[in-house]
Design a protein around this nucleic acid. Sequence first.
RNA 1: GGGGCGGUAGCUCAGUCGGUUAGAGCAGAGCACUCAUAAUGCUUUGGUCGGGGGUUCAAGUCCCUCCCGCCCUACCA
Length: 506
Amino acid sequence: MSKTAYITTPIYYPSGNPHLGSAYTSTACDVWARFKRLDGFDTLFLTGTDEHGLKIQRSAEKAGMETQAYLDGINEKFRELSPIMNLSNDDFIRTTEQRHKDIATKMWQTLEKAGYIYKDKYAGWYSVSDETYYTEEQLVDGKSPDSGHPVEWVEEESYFFKMSAFEQKLLDFYEQNPNFIQPASRRNEVISFVKNGLEDVSVSRTTFNWGIPVPGDDKHVMYVWVDALTNYLSAIGWPESDKMKYWPAIHVVGKDILRFHAIIWPAMLMAAEVPLPKQVYAHGWWTSEGKKMSKSFGNVIDPKEVTETYGTDQIRYFILREISFGSDGDFSKDRLVERINSDLANSLGNLYQRVLSMVAKNVGHVPQHQNLTEADEAYIGQFNGIIGDVRQEMEALQFHKALERIWQVVYSANQYMDAQEPWVLRKTDPERMATVLRVLMESFKYITALIKPFMPEAASKFEAQLNWQVTDYKTLEDADFFSLNVESEIQKPSGVFMRVENKEAA
RNA sequence: GGGGCGGUAGCUCAGUCGGUUAGAGCAGAGCACUCAUAAUGCUUUGGUCGGGGGUUCAAGUCCCUCCCGCCCUACCA
């Protein structure tokens, strides 16, 4: 019985090009999934696109295309996020796929059968020009808050989900599962929201037809809640499939859609008697050079462009190291260049370079070590438990802390090498030099293995240079510190992380 | 209006149940070293811990108040 892990991004709404925000969510999930796989978990990492709704329908009409054909085109842009960010998603679900439609329909029927769906009238202030409803509170001077156009009171027949029935059950659940909503500040927001009382939500529409038909009532299509949220289950074949072993999932979402995932979704699952997700983690937003990203400022970060300029691993590292996961952050080219140069090129890249150059030049293979000194033991001791420490941070999705912990030993490695001065030993005591270099090389196994989920390509290069490969964390933890093969040839290394100049992107 | 979060070195942030000289990284300065990617290491400059008041033997850490910033307050994923 192997351990399983399941992590999801939201399904993205493909109305434009994928932004840094979606790249960020996906990268975080990817790093977590890669870590879990190396940690011995049978892991499922899911992403996809939400392809229903009025906006899509209108965009397709505007483009003069048949809706599905239109979607197949723009869908490619979102699939491209995987090669761009080097994502290892196991699946990519689209809500227009039959497998999803079937299961969303099944979900609807289950909710209905359990008595949580009823037909009533949905009423609200409707703006004809915006084609959307507003609540009383949203109106500005009795007009649309977006366009300023007049609104009218419209009542529409709609099906409702009895969310009000779950108010107390949700509060109890939050209480019993304090980590369900993270970070804590977001949890507080959700709890206070629920405490203010839950109303039933409208779950169908008759004003457009690009969606999944409500079973038994073709006039209606399912509104976003039941449709989109159910993707997390349709990808694993709910209710009966061997893939159900992955459930429950961890949902990583932007803070804007936290409420849907932390309130409506759990309520729906309770109603359908499906176990609730393990966690809903809301992350923050990126600004760019201190300002909100917008076309008019010309400061929109395009994941494709920025990874091509600075490197995918570099960008992956930066977005997860720069800010604590959950907080907002600023994407500044200066900070990015600083991080690349100081953390990656100077501290890490140069460390491997200086050690492996000496090994290649003076030994040519993994050096044979002799008796250890106190300094050696002290340095080696720092790798005791490091995997466990990082594991703990990853468990809490504290990516920046995991990286901080890894960099502690990167700094230590540079210190250790400077203190031992192998370049002096080369002339005075070659055997001792060999021991120092060997100790350093062995320590690189841990560093390489731990950065691999964050920077898979660079880690592979390091593995090649060490003539060694990580299999999984458990094996590494159980193995002796000295486990490299002395026979292994070590060749002159070439730099993995090079310094960069601050290139101004257009 | 109601609720929540935050204001600590030039920048980004740590500071556990209040307890000795308030920490880290980056940036700045000096020194050392030369294996290495003008890298690394060591030392060092720098803070009235937003303002004011209070509790206490002792407060960045608790209480009150004020100022500033941000977030949430239901159906345009």
